[in-house]
Amino acid sequence: MRNIMTTSVLLAIGLMACESTTPTTVSDPAAAELWQPTATTQTSAPSAIPVTERSTRRVTVDQLRRSLPALFGGETWTYEGTGNGRDARTYQLLDTLSRTLGEADYNEVTTPNVDPSPLFQKFMEDLAAQLCAKGLARDADGGSDVEKLIVPYPTDVDANLRFLRLKFHGIYVSEDAETDTDGLDDLRGLYEAIEADTGANDAWLGVCIAMVTAPEFLAY
């Protein structure tokens, strides 16, 4: 009996609360287009939804396996085994070192390890150095500027840096952007420092390695 009375009281309070809510017109015209309050309890336009984000993650080996050929004209990270006997062959290193790099084989290892460990970073350095060099070598082989992988704008350093920023990091930097907030100043500084030492080709190699090993490339 006590339970029934309690429930009744709560129900009555709930009904009074509902009745006291008067539907109003949405003041924001943009919201009004999308939101037509009828006989609901909605009293105003929906407030901004708080942004909830997942945590940052390191790229997986499989993501690298699929994205690197797209970025470097079909090239992948390889190793030419030169020893005697069994290892005299070309290794696809993302496959050969997949377990060391943290890829699950779903036989012995069933959870991929996506720690940005020092070993992973070391291999990313190797990978970047090789693929950037391959990309620059292909650029040097000829073809039109639009087909170039690393340096499609050889005479305009800023344009090329913006191109690489978009290509590797997915960050669009407009021509009139404030460069001190988009990372181009640092990259231009790197380019100029290496160019002064050993020339433009090395400078683009350094910039390419910096971008492929950057957190912006390796995490998402």
Partner: peptide, 24 residues
């Protein structure tokens, strides 16, 4: 060190760049 590793000069500049580069 990888066979493909860039020259010591480039590596030095890369280290200096990484020390001050701001993440996006």
């Amino acid at each position: 060190k990888s066979d493909d590793a860039p020259s010591t000069s480039i590596q030095g500049h890369l280290s200096a760049y990484r020390a001050k580069a701001v993440n996006c």
